[in-house]
Structure formats: C-alpha cells, structure tokens
Design a protein around this nucleic acid. Structure first.
Length: 566
RNA sequence: GCCCUCGUAGCUCAGGGGAUAGAGCAACCGCCUCCUAAGCGGUAGGCCGCGCGUUCGAAUCGCGCCGAGGGCGCCA
C-alpha cells in the first residue's frame, strides 16, 4: 500500500513497519511460517471502539501461513514493539482484525503537526511535481455554455485544484473546436442571419444553429459595419463572419467560466493544428507505421489492431481529416509539451471515442494509461415538474450565465461537485432556486463564518492566536470527545486530498468538508472557546483554526468561497 | 444486437472486499438570560433492483436477468 508524507500516512507506515518486524520475529521464533506476504492494509476503522488503526494482515495471511487468523493476530501482537510507534495497546477482534489503540494524548501531537503547516495545511508532495493536464468543457464556440458544460467545469476545475494541492504540476486547458464541419455550418447560419438582418428573404437552414444568441450578435455586427459584407464573395463573407463570431463567442465563454470561478492556463485552437501541419504529420506517421487502411476512397485507422470492432475514418473521401485525426494530433501535441498524464473530462455521449483515442495513443508509442477520460453522465433539466430536452440546435437550454445568476456560483458548483461523475443528475431548477438555503454548501460555509465571528469576539476581549504554535502542554487541555473527534478527522485532510486527486474523484472532498463542518458545529455546541481559562481558550481556538483552514482550503479547491460573515 | 454508466432510507445521494450500511432533505420530539439556532441532540425510516457464483467475509468482485441513461455516422 502507498504511504505519503502526511501526519496520518506517516503513522500508518510506522505501524506497518512494526507489523513487518513483528512478523519476522514471529517467524524467527517459529510461531509463523509463510513465503509471501499478501497485500494487507493498515487503515482507520469506521468504528471508534475498534481502535485508532486496524489491520487485516492476519486475515489475509491465514491461508498462506496455514493458521487460524486469530492465532496469527495473537502472534503478531505478542512480538509487536508498541513503543516504537506510539501504540498503547493492541486488541484482536472479530474474525482476526488487529486493532491498534494509540497512546493517550496522541491527538495532541497530530494537532501540533497540523498547526505547523499553517495556511498550507492539506497540501502535500505526493504528486512529486509531475506534469499533468486536465482538459475540460471544450464546448464548441458556436453557442452558449449549458448545464452539462457547467458540470464539466465544476468537476474539471476542482480536480485540477486537488491535483495541485496533492503536489502535481497541473494545467487547465480548453480545446477550441474552431475548425471542421460544424464551423462551416456555423458560417452558413451566420451568413443567412446577416443577410436576413439586411432585409433579404432567405430561409434559415434546417441544420443551422438556432441559438437565440446569434441573431443578437449579428444585429450588433450590422450596427457596426452595416452592409459592408453584402458585396463580398460568400466564401470570404462567411470567413469574416466566422472570425467575428468566434472571437465574440470565445470571449463570452471565457467570461462565463471566469464568473463560475474557472480560469484556464491554455486555450488551444484546433485550427492551429491544421495550419501547422501537425494533423498531416501525425497521419503520415501512422501511415508510415502501417496503421492506416485505404478503402472506399478514405483513409481508415486500423482500430481492430487495438481491439476495437471496426476501423475508423481518419481522412474523408474529400481529403479532409476527421475530428478523430485532429484529436490524435492534439493529444500527441499534449505529450510533446511534457504532460505525463492527460485527463479529459467528456460527456457520456463521447464514450465511443475513448477506446479509439487510447488505442491511437498506443499506436503513437505512448501508454494507454497516459490518456485518462472522465465520462460524465448527463445533466437533465427539470422545470415545472417536466423534463426539458436540452438542445443547442433548437436553442432550448439553460445557460451557465443563467445558472450562476439564479442559483448562485457557490451553490451551483457544490451541487455539481457533490455527485460523482458517474451519476445522472436531474437538476430541478425550481427546487435549486427555492432550496437555496438548504443546500449543504451553506452548512459548510456557516461553519467557517462562525469561526471568523469567534475570532472577532476573541480579539475584542484581548485573546489572539499566537503566531507560534502552542506548546503541547496547552494543547493537551483538549480532551472532550467532540474535540478529539474533530482533531482525528482533520488529520485526514491531506490524505483525503491525495485520494481525491489520484482517484479523480473531487466529490470525495465535498463529502469530507461536510463531515468536518458537522464535527465543527458539534464541537462549537459542546465546548465554549472563550472561557476564563486562557490556555484552554487558546487551545480551542487553535483547533478551530485548523478546522477553518481545512474548510477554507477544501471549499477553495471546489471553487466555492468561504465567507467570513453570513 | 453489441459496448459503457447507474439502480442503496419517502426524496437527492455518499460508501466500490471487512466489523452494527451513512449524510442531507422531508416527518416526529427536545435544546438559545451564554462565542451567529443558516446550529445541536434524539426518534422513526433499509431483502443495498432480482438470481446464481467467488471468498474466512459481498452493498462492494464475476456471470445472468430486470429497469434507467448514453454510445455504436466519411458528425464533433
């Protein structure tokens, strides 16, 4: 199992080390005989009465050692060096779990360690500075961002933040689909709208872009330049209209995402891959390495060689590369920029694209695992109790801007990031608006606001937190069950962040931060912080400070603000 | 037809080999002369979709059904 340089992980590793030593001693004494050690764990039991740490080593070793698990556990316990890892006692429970009970006051040393991290508490070096990239949203710049994009933004941005906290060098990227078929259609739609705006009676194409934003955009253009484009050749006219509209739409998208708390490191243009020859180069490379088939006038990627059902077109009969070809060139470009791992956040409708992209990466000599894809299930919108079919083409959808305006950024981001990407969300807009105050995000934010309020009250009576961490004697004044429970869970923060980052599951942090808020509220209720005992007050304020830091850093990673007042 | 995801409390969802399955909302009962009651405590609520396997141990892993969503285009 993996250990990290965090307060809890260090202790688990120590216990693990002692277990291994104990096994060796037991073997030397002839109590246990085994060849291979199975992959056991040292973990925190769910039930507090089962100790501070527990291991299933005896259960898993039972078969290999041909001994009853409880007997094995007893041998391990008998040879265990308690003092070496601050364990007070060991008990054997259930079918053969070994439960470790830490020495009295060990929470105090945990809290002292947490305090020493200051505002940085929660960060770690688990990622060792490895370069990774998260690409998300990447919606076509032909319309406005909708609920699905909002979900992708919340998940992608939060994941990137967590990767950074866990010590990865993470970049956020948006892929701009500013080339290909849909842009041509976009141009035709714009042209018709433009000419219509000038009074011409031409029908709007059936497969055009029906978004309500486009007529407005064209109206503004007409006000700016009048009929200047009317006399141009259609080809050039469309190009000029596309250039104008793309620039405007991209700017809208950038601002909408910024309002949602998302800022990218890089906006990558698909067109640039066409212009630089990168797409042609990658096609040539695949051709030279024998990956392409020529059939029916098109060039096909031989996907069957990496287990897919059928080949996939890379270059159409008309000589134009497909999106697949561009995407292969794009991802090769990512690796050439030094990203060890690339994580793409896609809608579930792109599921069919995953395996053939990973296969293509393999064909280019990269490892399949270097391209990870988070597939998000859909967001269905419910309004007036009815399912709204979202469609960009027909223009019926709720935009990201409307979502932020009506539900609020914090609540919206929390709702999205609370749920795993795998779950289908039915987003009831009326309910989200009504229940704004019941959203769990406010419960968490309130805990933070309460802390800030106490700091203010404390200052008013001359109590301020010392800049230097408290001495352990003061911290040892903490002993109430609500204090110890809070300390113990706060200690998990860096490991929770690492797990969320490595598993690509930001929703874990949303759940964790709610748990911390609950423990904090409970502590707040049970223990007064401003007491007549100066040292006790400082100890409790220190604990509250760590809780507030965890809530703030957790919320910040999720793109949610931690307000000092509510 | 084949492939992917999901099915857990009345509702929305966590938990993805481990010990007595959790939270929020909704329901019911308590708690402010005291740091923010947007809070705390308690009660009630469950064949973890169904069946068969693997395992010392399955809500969790495998297979098969049933149900929901998505994908199988010279679209992106």
């Amino acid at each position: 199992m993996d250990y990290y340089n965090t307060p809890i992980s260090r202790r688990r590793e120590k216990i693990d080390c002692c277990i291994k030593q104990s096994l060796e001693k037991a073997r030397a004494a002839g109590d246990i005989d085994f060849a291979n050690l199975p992959a056991y764990v040292v973990e925190t039991p769910r039930e507090a009465s089962h100790g501070d740490f527990a291991s299933n080593v005896a259960l898993l070793l039972s078969k290999e050692a041909r001994q009853n698990p409880r007997a094995l556990a007893k041998s391990i316990a008998d040879h265990f060096d308690l003092a070496a890892c601050d364990v007070a006692s060991i008990s054997i429970a259930g079918p053969g779990f070994i439960n470790f009970h830490m020495a009295q006051g060990w929470q105090t040393s945990l809290l002292a360690e947490m305090l020493s991290y200051g505002e940085k508490y929660g960060t770690s070096d688990a990622g060792a500075g490895i370069k990774v990239q998260v690409e998300f949203v990447s919606a076509n710049p032909t319309g406005e961002l909708h609920m699905g994009n909002a979900r992708g933004a919340a998940i992608g941005d939060s994941l990137a933040s967590l990767l950074e906290m866990a010590g990865f060098d993470c970049a956020r990227e948006y892929y701009i689909n500013d080339a290909g078929n849909q842009i041509e259609k976009f141009g035709v739609s714009l042209e018709v709208l433009y000419l219509q705006a000038l009074g011409q009676d031409i029908p709007f194409p059936e497969d055009g872009y029906h978004g309500a934003d486009l007529p407005l955009l064209i109206k503004e253009l007409v006000e700016e330049i009048g009929n200047e484009y009317q006399k141009l050749q259609p080809q050039l006219r469309q190009k000029k209209l596309i250039d104008y509209a793309l620039k405007r739409k991209l700017n809208d998208i950038r601002m909408a995402l910024a309002d949602f708390g998302v800022v990218y490191d890089c906006w990558f243009s698909e067109q640039s891959l066409h212009d630089s020859g990168a797409i042609q180069n990658v096609i040539d490379e695949l051709q030279n390495n024998g990956w392409l088939l020529k059939e029916e006038g098109a060039l096909w990627m031989d996907c069957q060689r990496f287990g897919e059902e059928k080949p996939e077109v890379l270059v159409r009969g008309n000589g134009l590369p497909t999106y697949y070809a561009a995407d292969i060139a794009y991802h090769k470009n990512k690796y050439m920029r030094g990203f060890a791992t690339v994580i793409d956040v896609w809608g579930a409708d792109h599921h069919g694209h995953v395996a053939r992209m990973q296969g293509a990466m393999e064909a280019l000599g990269y490892k399949r695992e270097q391209l990870e894809v988070i597939l998000m299930q859909f967001v269905r919108l419910i309004q007036n109790g009815e399912l709204l079919k979202m469609s960009k083409r027909t223009g019926t959808y709720i935009t990201l801007n409307e979502l932020v305006e009506e539900v609020g950024r914090d609540a919206a981001r929390f709702i999205f990031v609370m749920r795993s990407a795998d779950s289908l969300i039915d987003f009831d807009l009326d309910l989200a608006k009504e229940q704004t105050l019941k959203n769990p995000v406010y419960y968490v934010q309130y805990a933070y606001a309460r802390f800030c309020s106490i700091i203010t009250s404390a200052a008013a009576i001359g109590l301020t937190l010392p800049t230097k961490p408290l001495i352990s004697q003061q911290l040892q004044l903490l002993g109430h069950q609500s204090e110890l429970a809070l300390i113990r869970r706060l200690a998990d923060f860096p490991d929770e962040v690492i797990m969320a980052a490595l598993q690509r599951e930001p929703h874990r942090i949303a759940a964790y931060v709610q748990e911390i808020a609950a423990l904090f509220h409970n502590f707040y209720d049970k223990c007064r912080m401003l007491t007549s005992d100066h040292d006790l007050s400082l100890a409790r304020l220190s604990l509250a400070l760590v809780a507030a830091t965890v809530i703030k850093n957790g919320l910040t990673a999720l793109g949610v603000k931690a307000p000092s007042k509510m």
